[in-house]
Nucleic acid binder design. Sequence first.
DNA 1: CGCGGCATCGCCCATTTGGCTGATTCCTGG
DNA 2: CCAGGAATCAGCCAAATGGGCGATGCCGCG
Lengths: 205, 205
Amino acid sequence: MTTVLLVDDHPVVRSGLRAVIEAGDALTVVGEAATGEEAIVLAGHLHPDVVLCDLRLGSGIDGIRTTVALRALDPAPAVLILTTFDRDAEVLGAIEAGAAGYLLKDVDPEVIVQGIHRAAAGDMVLAPELATRVLKGMRSPLPRLTDREIEVLRHLARGATNKEIARTLFVTEATVKSHLAHIFTKLDVDSRSRAIHVAQETGLI
Amino acid sequence: MTTVLLVDDHPVVRSGLRAVIEAGDALTVVGEAATGEEAIVLAGHLHPDVVLCDLRLGSGIDGIRTTVALRALDPAPAVLILTTFDRDAEVLGAIEAGAAGYLLKDVDPEVIVQGIHRAAAGDMVLAPELATRVLKGMRSPLPRLTDREIEVLRHLARGATNKEIARTLFVTEATVKSHLAHIFTKLDVDSRSRAIHVAQETGLI
DNA sequence: CGCGGCATCGCCCATTTGGCTGATTCCTGG
DNA sequence: CCAGGAATCAGCCAAATGGGCGATGCCGCG
């Protein structure tokens, strides 16, 4: 019997997962957690074979940090990430963090059940919609922006003008333009709107 | 016995809702639909007392259009909207479309059950997190953008330049600028970046 | 120490954007 | 039928943006 721990901030989703998982008789849900913190504590006590973890967990730590902590346990459970959205950066982050795989929430129940079995067996589980994306991400890794550039990017995404960003960061407009020029080069774009778009698409911000 | 029809594009969420709804014995789920179209057909046959409908339904028609169609049925079911995000401008549209109310997906199961009972009784059901927002929205109603303006806004959010938008929509740049000027006025902004930001914040796109 | 990356700033110039005014056509609701 | 909103286009002008080039100071690393 494979044991599963559910981690999702939505009670309804937990109920649904429990229902589809326990529909067969080879899997049993040994616990539920609403937050990453809770999940880590529970996993330490319950030693589940597989942790099914939402990527976004409301206010607390996110799925990736939770994964890191879970994989540090002994024995370490296989961590299967669930999410609604397919953001590149987070997929890669989850894999790097030691997740056994990645499933989209809108798949059929049996896919989830199969995924849990394969994760328990030590296999890698990737939603087909994401597999190619992940591989592509491996080939052309995301551009590495500096902390300062990320900071500028955030202000950009909030719709700030160069002047406003400069005031906020206590630098001159020239500096902001310089950062922007670097950002544009790294993201391979030529306008702030497109920079915002790419940054959001890839999960950079 | 109050009958309920579930509408959500995620099988897992439907299972979860079914589980929490049928935990008591005053409610029964008479059907499930994965799309708005399916929901309308099923509701016509099943005549549920309440339809529990996700605001976002993947590829097909959205929750609002579904609500409009459902309310046109005879007898018309009470429509209770479920949503994950509280920043949805669409909740206002849902109310206008005749929804009996809306709930956030991350509430406790009993709140959902209570909401269904109250909707079936003809009451208005508002998640407290959203009630104030709705009232605020009533006082200063969200800007009403035309279909064309929304279309331009979407291209804008993808980072397109005026020239690109013009080419895509088969109009001149002057027209695009005209649309943008209207959008800016309605959103009370003065730059494309900020227009994108408020549009995303308010769930306009 | 010297090299490179980072953050900071300056200047110049072409392009894009945004604000303003005004015009035409079409369609819809009273 | 007429008023009004919507979509289409035009021209003008100021401001913001983006690109290119260079410069300085700082810091970590081999």
